[in-house]
Simulated assay, not measured.
Amino acid sequence: MDYLQGRAARDKSFSYEVVIVDDGSVDGTKRVAFDFTRKYTFDNVRVIPLGKNQGKGEAIRKGMMHSRGELLLMLDADGATKVTDLEKLENQILAVAREENSIRDPASKHSDFRIGDVQVSAFGSRAHLEEKAIATRKWYRNFLMKGFHLVVLLAAGSGIRDTQCGFKMFTRAAARRLFTNIHLKRWCFDVELVFLCKRFNIPMLEISVKWSEIPGSKVSMLSIPNMLWELALMSVGYRTGMWKIHQA
């Protein structure tokens, strides 16, 4: 909020909202979230309480579908990624969106346009930190990481090295198209986003961001079988036509 308020003070054309999705938490998250709503007003901070846990993918989907902005950023509440890095994603999306818009409508090349109407996605990435992580992690964790990367490659194809970083930005048009079609409700929805971006020919940008390890991660060794199951489900669902894709 300090960052967003400061930016709005410097740039009168800048507007924002923060959407907090509480995925059935059993700690004090919901109370803290509503305190922020009272402090900063409903126009700036909104809370979506899901009642019971539905999974990170479903929580993100609901947040995206309720968002009102032209650019929609998803970020984890633990603060592992610095919020100021959103400007890196924003600037590169804007550059690509202008190019895409000029291709679509050459007459508008030098005129204003609504960035939210152009479909572009930006994936925050920790891939640049991988070499250091490999040197400090246990061998079996590195083995599992490489194995997961291979499975992701087989399921969604190449293009994004770090699919799981919880810091992604979409133009409004891209978010509506992607999250209308998302099926996976838990950990591997990020991989499905890559798959859908390719299916819809939505440009994908992978942008290095600052990231720090935060204690209390919900991902563990026991998460691996569930993630593999989700990837297998996605592969079967799309290849057999059981999962339909809405083009609109």
Score class of each variant (00 low, 15 high):
39 K>E: 02
55 G>Y: 09
66 H>S: 09
35 D>N: 15
36 F>S: 04
58 E>G: 10
28 G>E: 10
53 N>Y: 11
51 G>S: 06
37 T>D: 02
41 T>Y: 08
59 A>V: 05
35 D>F: 14
35 D>W: 14
46 R>D: 00
34 F>I: 02
35 D>H: 15
32 V>R: 12
43 D>M: 14
63 G>T: 07
32 V>K: 12
30 K>R: 11
50 L>S: 01
33 A>C: 02
59 A>H: 00
44 N>I: 01
66 H>V: 01
35 D>S: 15
68 R>I: 10
27 D>H: 04
69 G>R: 10
42 F>K: 15
63 G>A: 03
39 K>Y: 07
54 Q>D: 00
29 T>L: 08
48 I>Q: 07
45 V>L: 01
62 K>D: 01
69 G>K: 11
36 F>M: 09
46 R>N: 00
57 G>N: 07
43 D>N: 15
67 S>H: 09
64 M>I: 14
53 N>P: 14
38 R>Y: 08
39 K>V: 01
53 N>C: 10
56 K>V: 03
61 R>Y: 02
51 G>A: 00
39 K>S: 03
44 N>A: 04
33 A>I: 11
51 G>L: 07
48 I>D: 00
42 F>L: 06
62 K>P: 02
56 K>P: 00
52 K>S: 05
28 G>A: 13
39 K>W: 05
52 K>D: 01
43 D>T: 14
69 G>C: 12
31 R>A: 12
43 D>L: 15
46 R>T: 04
65 M>G: 06
51 G>F: 06
44 N>V: 00
39 K>T: 11
36 F>W: 11
68 R>Y: 12
37 T>Q: 15
42 F>N: 03
37 T>N: 11
35 D>R: 15
33 A>R: 10
30 K>A: 05
25 S>L: 05
30 K>I: 02
35 D>C: 14
64 M>T: 07
68 R>W: 09
56 K>Y: 05
66 H>C: 06
32 V>A: 03
39 K>D: 00
54 Q>V: 13
34 F>H: 12
69 G>N: 09
37 T>V: 15
33 A>W: 07
31 R>W: 09
59 A>T: 02
63 G>D: 01
32 V>N: 05
67 S>N: 08
64 M>F: 14
52 K>C: 04
40 Y>E: 01
59 A>R: 04
31 R>K: 11
37 T>I: 13
43 D>Q: 14
51 G>E: 00
44 N>W: 01
34 F>C: 03
41 T>R: 12
66 H>M: 02
55 G>H: 08
57 G>T: 04
63 G>H: 06
45 V>P: 10
64 M>N: 03
68 R>D: 01
47 V>H: 04
42 F>T: 11
32 V>T: 09
55 G>L: 07
35 D>E: 13
37 T>C: 15
26 V>L: 12
37 T>W: 13
60 I>V: 12
68 R>S: 07
63 G>P: 13
25 S>C: 07
66 H>T: 04
29 T>A: 07
28 G>H: 13
25 S>D: 03
27 D>S: 12
36 F>G: 05
40 Y>V: 05
28 G>W: 11
26 V>Y: 04
66 H>L: 08
59 A>N: 01
